[in-house]
C-alpha cells in the first residue's frame, strides 16, 4: 500500500527544487561578497550592537564558517525551511478533507493511520533534495572562493537539522488534524514556527529568561556551533526526534478519532 506515499512524494518535488534554487541564488550572493567583506569584517562586526549577535547566535563572523552559518543557516535554513515543512504538513490532512479528496481516499481499503503516515513519509523528498542540493552548493561555493569549509561540518549541519525540520513538520501535521479550515491551519503552523524561533532568539538575550527558549525546537539545533566550533550535539538531535515522534503520535490518534465532515 504505497499509492498515497508515491503520489504525495511526487507533489513534493517541485517545491523542493525551487527551494534549492533559492539557496543557490543566496549562496552565490553571499560567497561572491565574502572576499571583499572579509577585509573590513572586523570593523563591520564592531559596528554591530552586541544584542544583534546574541539574538541570531552569531560568532566568528570574520571567518567563512561563521559568515555562512549566520547568513545562510541562522535565518534562511532554520526559519524559511522550517516554515516550509510546517506549512506543507499543515495542508496534508485538512486540505484533503476540505477538497473532498479524503472521502475518496478513505473509500479504499486503507486505514487512517496509513493515510497520515504515508503523507508524512513523503517529506523524505524535500529532506533529501534540500539536504543534498544545498550542502553541495555551499561546499562548492567555499571551494570556488578558495576558502574551503570542512565538508564534515557541512554534512552535519544538514544531518542534525533533519530532526529540527521534522519537529516543524510535526507542528504542521498537528495543526492539520486539529483545525478545520485550511487557511487557519496553515497560518497557525506558519505562525507557530516563527513565534517559537523568536522566543528562542529573544530569550537568549537575557540569562534570567534563557530557560524559556529551552521549550523551542531551534534551541536544540545550533548551526554556528556545528560550523564554527565543530561541536555536534547528537543528544539534542535525539530529543528533537522524540518530540517529532510525540507530535506525530498525537496527530495520528486525533485523526483516527475525529469525524470527517
Amino acid at each position: 500500500m504505497t499509492a498515497i506515499f508515491r503520489l504525495e512524494s511526487k507533489k513534493r518535488v517541485r517545491g523542493s527544487v525551487i527551494l534549492v534554487a533559492v539557496f543557490a541564488v543566496l549562496s552565490a550572493m553571499y560567497f561572491s561578497i565574502f572576499p571583499e567583506y572579509e577585509e573590513d569584517a572586523e570593523a563591520l562586526i564592531d559596528a554591530f550592537p552586541e544584542y544583534m549577535l546574541d539574538f541570531f547566535g552569531l560568532e566568528a563572523l570574520h571567518t567563512i564558517e561563521g559568515f555562512i552559518a549566520a547568513e545562510i543557516y541562522s535565518f534562511f535554513w532554520v526559519l524559511l525551511v522550517g516554515i516550509y515543512f510546517a506549512y506543507i504538513s499543515a495542508g496534508m490532512i485538512v486540505k484533503d478533507i476540505d477538497r473532498r479528496r479524503m472521502d475518496l481516499t478513505l473509500s479504499n481499503p486503507v486505514s487512517r493511520e496509513s493515510v497520515i503516515l504515508q503523507k508524512v513519509a513523503s517529506l523524505w523528498v524535500p529532506l533529501v533534495i534540500l539536504n543534498t542540493g544545498v550542502p553541495v552548493i555551499v561546499y562548492g561555493g567555499s571551494v570556488l572562493i578558495g576558502n574551503t569549509i570542512n565538508p564534515e561540518a557541512i554534512v552535519l549541519v544538514h544531518l542534525l537539522s533533519v530532526p529540527y525540520l521534522l519537529v516543524c513538520a510535526g507542528i504542521g501535521i498537528l495543526c492539520s488534524v486539529l483545525i478545520d479550515r485550511v487557511r487557519t491551519a496553515q497560518a497557525t503552523a506558519f505562525g507557530l514556527v516563527i513565534v517559537l524561533w523568536l522566543i528562542d532568539s529573544a530569550s537568549a538575550l537575557d540569562e534570567e529568561y534563557e530557560w524559556v527558549g529551552d521549550l523551542t525546537p531551534s534551541r536544540y539545533y545550533d548551526e554556528t556551533a556545528i560550523l564554527v566550533r565543530e561541536e555536534y550535539a547528537y543528544a539534542d538531535a535525539g530529543l528533537l526526534t522524540l518530540a517529532f515522534v510525540f507530535l506525530l503520535g498525537v496527530s495520528v490518534l486525533l485523526f483516527i478519532r475525529r469525524d470527517i465532515h
Partner: peptide, 8 residues
C-alpha cells in the same frame, strides 16, 4: 463509492 461531490 461514488460520492456526490467528487474530490479528485
Amino acid at each position: 463509492y461514488l460520492p456526490d461531490e467528487l474530490g479528485f
